[in-house]
Simulated assay, not measured.
Amino acid sequence: MPKGKGDTPLSSAGKLSFASLGSGSKGNATLVSDGETSVLVDCGFGLRETERRLARLGVHPRQLDAVLVTHEHGDHLRGVGPLARRHGVPVYLTPGTWLSGRLGEVPQRHWITPQARFAVKSLVIDPITVPHDAREPVQFRFESRGCHLGVLTDLGHPSEHVIEAFRGCDALILECNHDRHMLEIGPYPPQLKRRVGGNWGHLANIQAAALLQHLGLDRLQRIVCSHLSEHNNRPELALEALTPLLDGDASRLTIAAQDSGLQWQAIR
């Protein structure tokens, strides 16, 4: 295994791999690596907690080549500035996300232009505009050595633009934020329920299933249910919504949990 810039190993050399530090309303962060290049998508945990969760996955912050930011909400942005300042990690984000004023100064800042492909060393990255209630939100599609990974969370509905952009992935990290019935009868005030369940909020289990049908399932080796709501969803409900699309075979499905995240997953 390669050792990058730190003292701990990353994912297997030559394979596009991913892992989750944790996913949910209390913090989100996803690792993507092909053994040569390693990036962190979002960092919604405090600095010490981020360092602890990275270590759990065998990664030191010095091994990161970049942090890519999807949008400015705290559960995605909270730890980005402290991590970048402490360890000198470059930050990539849209001008709209920067103009939210929630990041603070960072040592190296790079602009992301939605729909404009860019590269971080060996990783080729497509930033895709998504319908979400943020200033200039994007999600990401990664390519390395012919393998494709989609990271697709925090979108209110599966727009045609999103469907086209994420077709043909080999693995997909997909938002399954809420069960509509649980949201309806749950503890949130009416205004927050409307926001979460609206076209600029978060994806329901049933919407995630519909999106998968449009994307096609033949090529997908791994589907990760992510960003599950603590109050409005349960892992078994997310799995129940998606499993019928796989003819009852749930072996390709897994959950990115809030506390335990998800261990390294390699794409063949």
Rank of each mutant, 00 (worst) to 15 (best):
V124C: 11
R117L: 10
H110L: 10
G156P: 11
R141A: 14
D154K: 04
A134R: 04
L152F: 00
S144M: 13
V124L: 13
A116I: 08
V120P: 13
K121G: 09
V106L: 08
I112W: 08
R145A: 15
V138R: 03
G146N: 11
A116Y: 06
V106C: 07
S159V: 02
H161F: 00
D126R: 10
H148R: 15
F142W: 10
S122D: 10
F140P: 09
D126V: 07
R109C: 08
H148Y: 11
G156H: 06
P127R: 13
G146H: 11
F118K: 08
E136V: 05
R135N: 06
L152C: 01
P158D: 03
V120R: 09
P114F: 02
R135W: 07
S122F: 11
R141Y: 10
H132E: 02
H110E: 11
A116L: 13
E160M: 01
E136N: 10
R141G: 12
I128V: 15
A116C: 08
Q108M: 09
K121E: 15
V120H: 10
E105R: 09
W111G: 01
R109L: 15
Q108G: 05
V162K: 00
G146E: 11
L152Q: 00
Q108D: 14
H132D: 02
E136K: 03
H132K: 03
R117A: 13
D133R: 14
I128N: 02
E160T: 04
I125F: 11
D126I: 03
H157N: 02
V138G: 06
P137W: 06
A119M: 12
T113C: 00
H132S: 03
P131V: 05
P107D: 08
R141S: 12
V138P: 06
C147K: 15
V162C: 01
P127V: 14
Q108R: 15
V124D: 14
P114T: 03
P131A: 05
L152A: 02
R135L: 14
T129Q: 09
P137H: 06
G146Q: 11
T113P: 00
H110M: 07
V151H: 12
G146P: 14
D154T: 05
S144E: 13
E136S: 09
G146F: 10
R117K: 14
T113M: 00
G156T: 08
P131S: 05
C147L: 12
V130F: 01
H132V: 02
P131K: 03
L155Y: 12
V162R: 00
Q108W: 10
D126S: 14
F140N: 10
T113K: 01
G150M: 04
